[in-house]
Computed example of a mutant assay.
Amino acid sequence: MHSLTVKLSLLALAGSIAALVVWTVSSPAITDLPETVVIEPGPYTYRPAGNYRYYGKLVEAPLEQLVAEAPLEIMKFQVSRAEYAACVADGACKASVVTQGGSPNSATMPQTEVNWYDATAYAAWFSRQTGLHWRLPDDREWQRAAAERFVEEAIVAEAEDDPAQRWLQAYARNVAARDGDEAELKPRGAFGENSHGLFDLAGNVWEWTNTCVANTNLSDDGAKPLVQQEYCGAHIAEGKHRAIVIDLVRNPKVGGCAAGLPADYVGFRLVLVR
């Protein structure tokens, strides 16, 4: 009888421990989630990033007409300094040279001076803390979310075969797109919202994506990729124009842009995968 009582007590204790473990795992540390916007399924256009060649000649990437079958949920604002500081305080993110303090608006400033690894580390930490799956958007998703804020690059004349001249033309386009830029960093929301209700897209903070730099050879019809080589030591950062930024770089203005005109600042926002 005594043995049976002990066994029942042990079973009850084991059940309590199991219940405690389940509660601990399922109870998120962060329940106050950032505002998100859900972009409904539907048609959109996408021009891929990277260098495209047709029979060895550098050409513009083909414009794709696509239909999204699933909704896209993405942060309404870029990750702020205060939000990133919580990850740093928890030991999961590396401290940035840009910290809270000073200006009264500092906490609401977008977090900049973060590289691609910093952004992905924050996404992993935030996923653990909320019990949800957060990640950087890929370039396709960012363009879909940006809608009219995406800056479509003008087509360079196909007769222009000199890569150096094409590069100079692209550089000049990007300079023109940024004419009248305000270099001063501003609090989140300062650059307004787009038609989807997302703020600060194509402001002066570019945003990291999960899209690697790619070199693509087109097939005979000039439309479909025949061979594609990715280099993931640099990723696409989207803003007033596309920028290719080396993954380790936190400040693209000091030589960290792999090609073209560098971004003013680089930050990020995350996609929520449900």
Rank of each mutant, 00 (worst) to 15 (best):
L248Y: 09
E160V: 06
E182P: 05
A159N: 15
N51I: 06
D139S: 14
V6A: 15
S9P: 08
A61I: 01
F268G: 01
A157E: 09
N105I: 06
N194T: 00
G50V: 01
V245C: 05
P43E: 13
K224W: 14
C212W: 04
S3P: 00
A145R: 02
G131A: 06
G255K: 11
L66K: 14
Q165D: 08
T99F: 02
P225Y: 09
A121T: 02
D220F: 13
A29K: 10
D200Y: 10
A61N: 08
S103Y: 06
I246Q: 08
W23I: 04
P262I: 00
A154W: 15
Q229L: 07
Y265M: 08
G256Y: 15
T130L: 12
N217Y: 10
T5A: 15
E160L: 12
G255S: 04
E73I: 01
V88N: 07
R135V: 02
L4G: 11
V98W: 10
Y231A: 06
W125P: 01
G197E: 00
D179T: 05
E148Y: 12
A68N: 07
E152C: 08
Q229W: 02
R178C: 10
A86C: 06
H133D: 11
G192Y: 12
Q111D: 11
Q111G: 00
V97N: 07
N251R: 13
D118F: 02
V213L: 11
G197A: 04
I39G: 03
R178T: 08
E230S: 11
Q78Y: 10
H241I: 00
V59W: 10
R135G: 05
R53H: 12
L261N: 15
A92D: 01
E182I: 09
A107T: 08
L10R: 15
G255P: 05
F268E: 00
H241Q: 13
G256P: 07
E152Q: 13
V271W: 00
L132K: 14
A176T: 07
G91Q: 10
E60C: 02
D247A: 04
I30L: 11
A243H: 10
N115W: 09
Q100R: 05
L10N: 15
A243C: 07
G267S: 11
I155D: 13
W134F: 13
L33F: 09
P163R: 14
F77Y: 13
E238T: 10
P43L: 12
G101H: 10
L226A: 13
M109W: 01
E148N: 14
E73P: 01
L272P: 08
A82R: 13
H196N: 10
V254G: 02
T112S: 07
P137Y: 04
A202V: 01
Q78E: 11
P252V: 03
R173V: 00
P43T: 07
A214K: 15
E40W: 03
Y265C: 02
L261H: 11
T5N: 15
Y171T: 08
L198D: 08
T45V: 03
A157L: 05
H2S: 13
V37T: 09
S80Y: 09
